[in-house]
């Protein structure tokens, strides 16, 4: 066969490559369309509404109101405060839990992880009302505690900040534990052996090696919890009993009570922008894809 007669299939190969790309795009298009229809368009619509005043004309009054009225500022402050405290409590409870899980043998850890995930499979509303039943004045917790003589008068644990925090921490905990567990699991145990071999006591090895290496997972988990808390509605609405007003609740009342879509949209836009700002700042310390993945650093 002479050199010139050899068929190189150049066009055919390029055609195959192009077809594979289109096939891949075709597979992802349902998801892309869904995102467009239920996310991009509505958010764009809200964004548009937020600039429409009561008279139906273009106006900045919805944003002006947030700056002018102290009550709006307080709502944002409360939202951040509750989110921060919830995140902090989740870290305090979740870190030891994740650490414990990560040290268990694979099979047992898997079983225990299911118990962490179990709440996920129960409706958010059910869990929230369950807390209401447990924590109310004549609820299980108060009656048992008084029967045991822990306290004499019923303690108010719902329709206030305490109830809100208890419920939110319970709901948010898995969001912290899962990425944290993943990143702890990925820490090679030889690192701790090496630290120990080089002279580090178990406590020292934990703080100089394990804790820093679990840092990205902790950061990722905390960020997820914090961001989710910012927009949380059901639990604070039910357990807060109107005493703890977060942005999402104000948005709801703007629509349900005042039928003011413009004001609600503007708050939504501000909350969205604040959340994006936080994620942007965080992304400078952490690659964002770690939020979705195991959080391994």
């Amino acid at each position: 066969m002479s050199g010139t007669a050899v068929e190189t299939h150049e066009d055919g190969l390029r055609h195959d490559a192009r077809r594979e790309r289109w096939a891949l795009f075709g597979l992802s298009s349902p998801a892309l369309i869904l995102v467009l229809v239920i996310l991009i368009i509505p958010v764009g619509w809200l964004f548009y509404l937020s600039f429409i005043g009561a008279d139906g004309q273009f106006s900045l009054e919805n944003y002006q109101r947030m700056v002018d009225r102290k009550s709006y500022r307080r709502i944002f402050e409360t939202t951040f405060q509750v989110s921060l405290i919830t995140t902090g409590l989740c870290i305090l409870i979740g870190y030891p839990l994740a650490y414990f899980l990560s040290q268990l043998p694979n099979r047992i850890a898997g079983l225990c992880l299911i118990t962490v995930l179990l709440p996920f499979w129960t409706s958010l509303l059910v869990r929230t009302y369950a807390w209401l039943v447990l924590l109310q004045k004549r609820g299980l917790v108060n009656t048992w505690a008084m029967d045991l003589g822990l306290w004499d008068e019923p303690i108010k644990m719902v329709h206030n900040l305490t109830g809100t925090l208890i419920g939110m921490v319970h709901i948010m905990l898995p969001f912290l534990v899962l990425p944290l567990y993943g990143s702890m699991r990925a820490i090679n145990r030889d690192y701790l052996k090496a630290a120990s071999n080089l002279g580090a006591s178990p406590t020292r090895a934990f703080w100089t090696v394990f804790f820093p290496l679990s840092g990205p997972g902790l950061f990722a988990g905390s960020l997820i919890v914090f961001v989710l808390c910012l927009g949380f509605y059901v639990t604070p609405a039910v357990l807060g009993g109107g005493k703890v007003i977060m942005v999402s609740m104000k948005i709801a009342s703007n629509i349900e009570l005042f039928v003011n879509w413009g004001a609600a949209s503007a708050m939504g836009v501000v909350l969205l922008l604040l959340t994006m700002l936080i994620l942007w700042v965080a992304s400078r310390f952490l690659r964002l894809e770690q939020l979705a993945g195991s959080g391994h650093g």
Binding site: N188, D190, Y191, K193, A194, A195, V209, P212, L213, G297
Partner: peptide, 8 residues
């Protein structure tokens, strides 16, 4: 065996 150098 795998060196166990601290990556951080």
């Amino acid at each position: 065996q795998n060196y166990a150098l601290f990556p951080h």
